[in-house]
Amino acid sequence: MPTFTIFRHTGRRDGAEARSNNFRDSFESCASSPRIGTLELAEYLKSQCDVFEGQAVKPSTEHPDYDPLFVNSRREAIFIFCLWAACLVWCVPYCYINGYVPEDQEVAILWGLPQWIVLGILVPWLIANVIAILFCIFIFREDDLGSSEEDAPTEASS
């Protein structure tokens, strides 16, 4: 499996899980593209790592050696922001179009509730919950938060 080979050759260090995942993503996208050949892929991977085939490689200035937790958190934050935006884009217009109706227009009922509430709020609420849970299970990374001064022995309070 090519992916494992690449992991081995990058000489991955502890805490570099995020970069490994970037490689995997890059490899998969490159491999599926007919326009990118093996050589280009190898050059790209070399530019992304400190150690390649056992030799030191100068880190790219375009892709600084960011902390994986920072990279993951930023990616997760973008996902969350998009989820919020998607809810906004669906819920407010849907409710406005279907719920803000004149007095002479009947309010449709679905499952015993106003239909605009069910489709504009309740169903999106449930879907958002499912997405949030799936996000936590499959996308959210369990990064190492690092140690803090509380982990070290401290002077006992008097």
Partner: peptide, 11 residues
């Protein structure tokens, strides 16, 4: 609708 965004408040 007023409180609709609570669907994503925790996350």
């Amino acid at each position: 609708l007023w409180i609709g965004s609570y669907m994503v408040v925790p996350i």
